[in-house]
Amino acid sequence: MATATYKDLCIDASDAHALARFWGPVLDLDVNLHDDGDADLRRAGEVLVWVNTVPEPKTVKNRLHLDVHAASLDRVLAAGARVVDEQPRWTVLADPDGQEFCVFVRQAGDERLRTPLYELVQDVTGDADDAHGLAVWWGDLLGATAVRDDGFSHLEHVAGLPCESLVFQPVPEAKTAKNRVHVDVTTRDVGAVVAAGAVVLRPRGEDGLGWTVLADPHGNEFCAFTVG
């Protein structure tokens, strides 16, 4: 049984309005700019992505990034992205905030060009077993199934997930800074999330905080909103 449910995605940015104006059209989501400088991206009125202004600039490679399916690179380049690296099957780009994401160019008629247009990819320090282990942890938390796939692992049947999948890939480098992209979940029992292996970084109520900031077993931050 799931201990938590996927809620939404959060992206930190030096200029949330500018980044929301970039990602909204790329992901076919409606852009909603807030008076306080933050923003959100919506589909049919439902918030799928929060974009929050933060004081700290981006300094390290993103540990969680988006893979986007597209008919070509033209749309993202015209929106303000720049090419970082060319790989045989995908292109690594940076958005206007300098945050990496990957574009997979698909042929016309490919069903992956329909919504959902993207997946979330989490870097995990270590080998494929470490990546799969974290996938299993998140799968247990969200009531989903972790599947090995050619050195990677991904989650299937994640309730409420508006994108294609959550993918976990092994990387050699260690986590050194707060993740600039993270997920939010809802739960009826934060204590059960902690008992499963999460660590509380900031408790709900601290300085008026309306949610609990946690880290998964590999130190990746996520936020839990208590419901019920």
Results as ranks from 00 to 15, higher is better:
Asp15Ile: 02
His154Pro: 04
Leu93Met: 01
Glu164Cys: 12
Gly139Gln: 04
Glu119Met: 09
Gly80Arg: 01
Pro96Val: 00
Leu117Asn: 09
Ala224Pro: 05
Ala81Ile: 01
Trp138Val: 00
Asp149His: 14
Trp137Ala: 01
Leu166Asn: 00
Val124Glu: 03
Glu46Met: 12
Tyr6Trp: 15
Ala215Thr: 14
Asp130Leu: 07
Asp38Glu: 11
Gly45Asn: 03
Asp130Met: 10
Glu119Asn: 13
Gly109Gln: 01
Arg21Gly: 02
Ala215Gln: 15
Leu117Lys: 13
Pro203Ile: 10
Val147Glu: 12
Ala20Gly: 09
Asp38Met: 09
Leu141Glu: 09
His182Gly: 07
Val200Asn: 05
Thr59Tyr: 03
Ala18Pro: 02
Trp90Ser: 12
Asn52Ala: 14
Asp38Leu: 10
Asp189Asn: 13
Thr125Ser: 15
Gln122Leu: 13
Val105His: 06
Trp138Ile: 00
Thr226Ala: 11
Gly208His: 06
Leu161Thr: 05
Asp8Thr: 12
Leu201Ala: 12
Leu155Ser: 02
Val200Ile: 14
Leu77Met: 12
Gly126Ile: 03
Pro203Tyr: 09
Thr145Cys: 07
Gln122Glu: 07
Val183Gln: 13
Trp23Glu: 04
His17Glu: 13
Phe104Pro: 03
Val167Pro: 01
Ala224Leu: 07
Arg188His: 10
Pro170Met: 04
Ala131Trp: 01
Ile11Cys: 02
Leu214Ser: 10
Ile11Thr: 00
Asp28Val: 11
Gln169Glu: 11
Pro88Leu: 05
Thr212His: 07
Gly208Gln: 04
Phe222Thr: 04
Val227Ile: 13
Arg75Ile: 05
Val158Thr: 14
Leu73Asp: 06
Met1Lys: 12
Glu156Tyr: 07
Lys7Ser: 14
Trp23Val: 02
Phe104Val: 10
Ala146Ser: 11
Val83Gly: 03
Gly37Met: 08
Leu214Ile: 10
Gly208Lys: 04
Leu166Gly: 01
Thr145Gly: 04
Lys58Glu: 14
Ala131Phe: 02
Asp110Leu: 01
Asp127Gly: 15
Asp38Ile: 06
Ala71Asn: 02
Val47Ser: 12
Leu77Gln: 03
Trp50Met: 14
Leu142Arg: 01
Val54Gln: 10
Pro116Val: 11
Gly208Thr: 06
Leu93His: 03
Val83Lys: 13
Cys102Thr: 02
Leu141Thr: 12
Asp85Ile: 09
Pro162Tyr: 03
Ala70Lys: 03
Ala195Pro: 05
Leu27Met: 11
Ala70His: 07
Phe225Pro: 00
Gly143Arg: 00
Asp67Leu: 03
Ala135Leu: 04
Gly228Asn: 09
Val92Leu: 15
Lys61Cys: 11
Asp149Glu: 13
Asp36Val: 00
